[in-house]
Write a protein that binds this DNA or RNA. Sequence first.
RNA 1: GUGGCUAUAGCUCAGUCGGUAGAGCACCGGCUUGUGGUGCCGGUGGUCGCGGGUUCAAGUCCCGUUAGCCACCCCA
Length: 432
Amino acid sequence: MASQVNPPRGMRDFLPADKAKREHAFSVIKRVYRDHGFDEIETPVVEDHARLHAGLGGDNEKLSFSILKRGLGAEALAAAAEGGDAEQLADLGLRFDLTVPLSRFYASHRAELPPVFRSIQMGPVWRAERPQKGRYRQFVQVDIDVIGEAGLLAEVELLSATSRVFAELGLTGCVFRVNDRRILFGLLDHCGFAPETHDRALIIVDKLDKIGAEGVVGELRELDPEAAERLGAVLTEVEPRLAGDGIPLTAEAISAILPEGAAAEGVANLAEIGAALEGSLPEGVELRFDPTLVRGMGYYTGTIFEVAHPGSGSSVGGGGRYDGMIGRFLGQDVPAVGSSIGFERIVDLIELPASTGPEAVALVHDADAAPADLAALKTALVARGHRVRLERRQKNMKTLLARVAEQGFTRFANVRAGERDVDALELRELSA
RNA sequence: GUGGCUAUAGCUCAGUCGGUAGAGCACCGGCUUGUGGUGCCGGUGGUCGCGGGUUCAAGUCCCGUUAGCCACCCCA
């Protein structure tokens, strides 16, 4: 095995069939988002090391790849080694998400952008994680964001566009689990958790689907036994509902499951979003309230959501409102909501639809056919709208024809040496 | 970062109790077929992931290492 020629760990090469499927998904996503009024932008794949480590990326910061400064000499290396500070060797890093770069982009170009800016970003990001199924060290993210809209219209636009993407890709059965950070914090307050325990409490609540209500309460007791019991009463009621059909995103259903008077602001927000989206969601997409949805990123301030699909063990998308983040770069708070699609994970779920374009033709020619004749025949067929592939005749026709059929060719013609008339070619059916 | 499984020909895989490696497919050649999707015969191709160790002898047993897969953590 020539392992030396494999791509770097956790990164992949894509063969033509893989690439075709990825491009299909890519084009569907881009078209739907553009149709919904979002504009595509692009930023560099590297950012300042300091900006990537400004505390906005959560755990992802620790997983970022750093780029060595150019022209480092022996003295600089020695100084860094002596100081024990590898950081001073790197001034740039590969981006680990698209949200930090977008915030920088917006702060930089605000004057040239509309008051409410709707962006599309599609590109690779890097994380130095241990690779496994559905998890890579280089992967593509597709983000849309609405910047400058404080009202929930932003959430509504985001969710309706994103749900349409899943529908157009043929991914039925998607469930959007929605929550609001204010509901989470309101609930913790209401149960009596001290503010300084909130972050730790949320991490525990996030495990509900893995360790169950009892497990969560057990861990929460270490923070505050009494508050843990109060929250446990809520979770015990919530848990079976989540396992069943879920909780609809309506004012009645949300209020019914939460303690009276807890997190009114967040409840109203979600209820309005649910009402606004009713009737405009595509078929096969469900909207559900999930009070245990947390999401890891610390920068979320309001609505948060995650997309689940029965064919994938992990989420295929997610996002939320992060009103404080751009202010970190701009010095002035700008409201923002973002949605990210797990491109690699949905590519694994979709099928490439059969081509509906003009027939693709393989010209199987004798070895002694003149290049000039072949070029002329090929050009003539291309001009007629065909996709054309030249294949030199080989001993095993069966293998050759099976291969071109697999590559999407639907017809083939035998070309003998001296053949120059494209109309004389017999285009025969190629069954896959 | 933690743990488990795996690694043999270009591909998919056999290889028993340790005795220096095999099949199918692909590829090449000859014949067959003859306007071509057939069949037969033969051939090329492997530092058994890499490095150590045990042994008279290691693909096989042991240790390390690298990579892949899987679970955890976290995430998309």
